[in-house]
Design a binder for these strands. Structure first.
Length: 399
RNA sequence: GGGGAGAUUCCCGAGUGGCCAAAGGGGUCAGACUGUAAAUCUGAUGGCUCAGCCUUCACAGGUUCGAAUCCUGUUCUCCCCA
């Protein structure tokens, strides 16, 4: 539980809260809230538009977990009403509107996966359709009258879209207001969000103040980038999902740029700051392996992380063929010879024959360790299972 | 309501009758190098029975020996005026 000492010093709590944060609006209020000694209501809105969580979400969930362990009350808002709009933040396109059914499905996987990091038993989960379905037209007008067009369109994301002559739907203006109204309805003391959420979080403050509530504290955490430098997002295909296999998760962390390691350590591990500093001062390869192991261990346990780490070294440092690899029965009945390109395609190592030919021509294909150069070379099954390799990390054992 | 502009290959974005499967960038993939699936460099990037053939430039028709490029209609978007 919350135990501010007799002097009212809550700095240990405050430090935990502050770790990795970008904005904290505002600090004095936060200290006062912590000093109250009661569980604070910590709100996080889920976007149930993408069911699979990735390490970008983990940043927020880990923060929630920290706060939960300090005895605070986590309130997850399932944006089933807002999901039908889609948060316009950071998007240069209208987002597809989700059906209620899709939201329900996503919600299940979402909470299942979130349970890996936070204690769902002690978490309050609310759907915002609870109050938005009940809101009538008058209520909507009342809510929308609290925001001005000028304030809304001065937002970067809308500015950019207007400059680029991209469409903006009127309903998109509703999103921040709805998110803010959620804060009113659950009487949030603090709301978490990514740095891109600051505007939405601040709207909550305004609405709460107008409703005579204590305005919530807003805490923003950095967004981390995916492998391509863009914001990590499932829709960009650059994310590291919770459900990634240990080896895959480890490898994907190893693929991040050296420059962002520090941020990842702060946001995705709970190693003490001094230890992080020491690691970063050492060899980058070692530091990154430690990071990858820590993250992998959180989802799969220390043993699996260790195994993933060792397998990674064998495969990429020593260039050994991994023990575990997908297996595929020899395509085409009768064990007849197949052209190499055709074989690659039918076992799924290349999406098209053209791609398969390209890979061979570029020297990216090995059969039993030998580089292949002829895409139309006939390949026969062989007595032993043969190993087909594309690039450095895609293998198939042919049975 | 009136006038104007636009929709291009995964994304952004050139291309305004043949030299266009379509510049450039991003992403992705492969190779080299290495400390890793970092960084850097090189190459590839519509499909196929691959020195050739086939299908793409919002959609449907049309003009032409030939169209992403011209015409007509449809859908969607943006801008200006009211």
């Amino acid at each position: 539980m919350i135990t501010p000492d007799s002097t009212g010093d809550n700095s240990p709590q405050f430090d935990i809260l502050r770790r990795g944060a970008v904005d904290l609006i505002e600090e004095q209020q936060t200290r006062k809230l912590l000093a109250l000694g009661r569980p604070l209501r910590i709100k996080l809105g889920l976007d149930p538009s993408s069911p699979d969580l990735h390490v970008g979400h983990a940043i927020q969930l880990l923060k929630l977990r920290d706060l939960q362990e300090l005895g605070h009350q986590i309130v997850l808002i399932v944006g089933d009403a807002t999901a039908m709009i889609g948060d316009p933040t950071g998007r240069n396109k209208l987002r597809p509107q989700l059906t209620r059914e899709a939201v329900e499905e996503n919600l299940v996987t979402y909470t299942d996966q979130a349970a890996e990091l936070i204690d769902m038993e002690r978490t309050e989960v609310r759907r915002n359709s609870e109050w938005f379905d009940a809101m009538d037209f008058q209520g909507l007008v009342r809510l929308t009258s609290r925001m001005t067009v000028a304030r809304m369109i001065e937002r970067d994301t809308f500015q950019q879209r207007m400059e680029a002559s991209e469409p903006i739907g009127i309903h998109e203006f509703l999103y921040p207001l709805m998110q803010g109204w959620d804060s009113v309805m659950v009487k949030a003391d603090l709301e978490l969000g990514g740095t891109d959420q600051l505007f939405n979080l601040l709207v909550g403050r305004d609405l709460q103040r107008e409703e005579g509530q204590m305005p919530q504290v807003c805490l923003t955490l950095p967004l981390i980038n995916g492998s391509d430098g863009r914001k990590m997002s499932k829709s960009y295909g650059n994310a590291i999902p919770f459900k990634a296999e240990p080896a895959d998760m480890f490898g994907k962390v190893m693929a991040i740029e050296d420059e962002v390691m520090g941020a990842w350590f702060t946001l995705l591990t709970r190693l003490p700051q001094e230890e992080i500093t020491t690691l970063l001062a050492g060899h980058p390869r070692r530091a990154k392996a430690a990071l990858a192991a820590d993250i992998t261990a959180r989802f799969h346990g220390a043993q699996a992380a260790q195994a993933a780490s060792e397998a990674f070294d064998r495969q990429f440092q020593k260039r050994e063929v991994p023990e575990d690899m997908p297996e595929h029965v020899w395509p085409d009945e009768g064990g007849a010879d197949l052209q190499l390109a055709t074989l690659l395609k039918s076992v799924g190592l290349a999406p098209t024959t053209s791609e398969a030919r390209r890979l061979v021509k570029q020297g990216g294909v090995r059969l039993d360790g030998e580089v292949q150069s002829d895409p139309v070379r006939p390949i026969s099954p062989g007595a032993e299972p043969r190993i087909l390799q594309v690039g450095r990390r895609r293998f198939v054992r042919l049975l």
